[in-house]
Amino acid sequence: MDVQTVNANVSRVPFFRFLNFEVRSLDSLHAEAEMTFDDRHIGNPIMEYYHGGIIASFMEATAAIAVQPDFADVPAKPINLTVDYLRPGVKGPLFARANVTRKGKRMASVSVLSWQTDREKAVAEGLYHFLLV
């Protein structure tokens, strides 16, 4: 699955267009994406930080693509998620890397890290489960 085809699929999902991100790299167990900051992503209008829900949504989107990059209609079905917020997401691009830790016949577990200028300084870390049936 090449990145260009995946991004074409991404652009067909209304909420993914709202998040405004692009997949940067992809292999059988990983996906990496970059989201462009938008005023509609703001949670704290004074500090202009990303809304925590937008960060979690972007991480979920990246995780779903890592699990099922060739989704036809809708992305992989999420079961649940947990997110740790480690630093505020400031105005600017946000990156996410999803790592499929286990993919069985029915279920997948995916861990996701998001950061901005320095990969070592994570903005958030999350664990997502998907139903594959």
Binding site: G52, A56, S57
Partner: peptide
């Protein structure tokens, strides 16, 4: 689902 997460937050 993400928008429901954002809504809860």
């Amino acid at each position: 689902g993400g928008i429901l997460t954002a809504l809860l937050d």
